[in-house]
Simulated assay, not measured.
Amino acid sequence: MQETKEQSIIPGLPDDLALRCIAKLSHGYHGTLECVSKDRRDLVHSEASSCYKARNRCK
């Protein structure tokens, strides 16, 4: 039997705050982040990440 354990985006941080941190990363670091894991790659390309980036540009 295989256990699946839901992990936070960045251990020790709430996911909302972790998304804000990732959204502030320069586009030049996205390739490095994408190499960490499939989950991180999916996160960089996710709608949630895009929304945080869009909100950050407006401020």
Rank of each mutant, 00 (worst) to 15 (best):
R20S: 08
Y29K: 02
L43D: 05
A23I: 02
K5H: 12
I10S: 06
M1S: 15
G31K: 12
L13Y: 13
E34W: 01
Q7D: 05
H45I: 00
R40H: 10
K53M: 12
K59E: 13
A23C: 07
L13N: 04
G31M: 04
K5N: 09
D39N: 11
E6M: 05
E34G: 00
R41P: 00
G31C: 06
V44A: 07
C58A: 12
K59A: 09
S8Q: 14
P11T: 06
G31E: 11
D42C: 12
H45V: 00
P11E: 10
L13R: 02
P11G: 07
S49Q: 11
L17Y: 04
H45M: 07
K24G: 08
G12P: 06
P14I: 02
E3I: 12
D42R: 13
T4D: 04
R41D: 05
R57C: 09
H27K: 14
C21A: 09
L17S: 06
K38T: 13
N56T: 11
E3D: 09
D16L: 08
A18I: 02
A23M: 03
L25T: 13
S37P: 03
S46Y: 06
D15A: 06
I10R: 04
L17P: 00
N56W: 14
M1F: 09
K24A: 14
L43V: 08
L33K: 01
E6P: 01
L19D: 01
V44H: 02
T32Y: 10
S46C: 08
Y52Q: 11
L25V: 11
R55D: 06
C35I: 04
T32M: 08
L13A: 05
K5P: 01
R41L: 06
T4M: 11
R57W: 11
C35D: 09
L33C: 14
D15C: 01
E47C: 04
E34F: 03
A48H: 08
K24E: 09
K59Y: 12
R57D: 12
K53P: 02
S49L: 15
L17E: 04
Q7P: 00
V36P: 01
D16F: 04
I9G: 03
K24D: 08
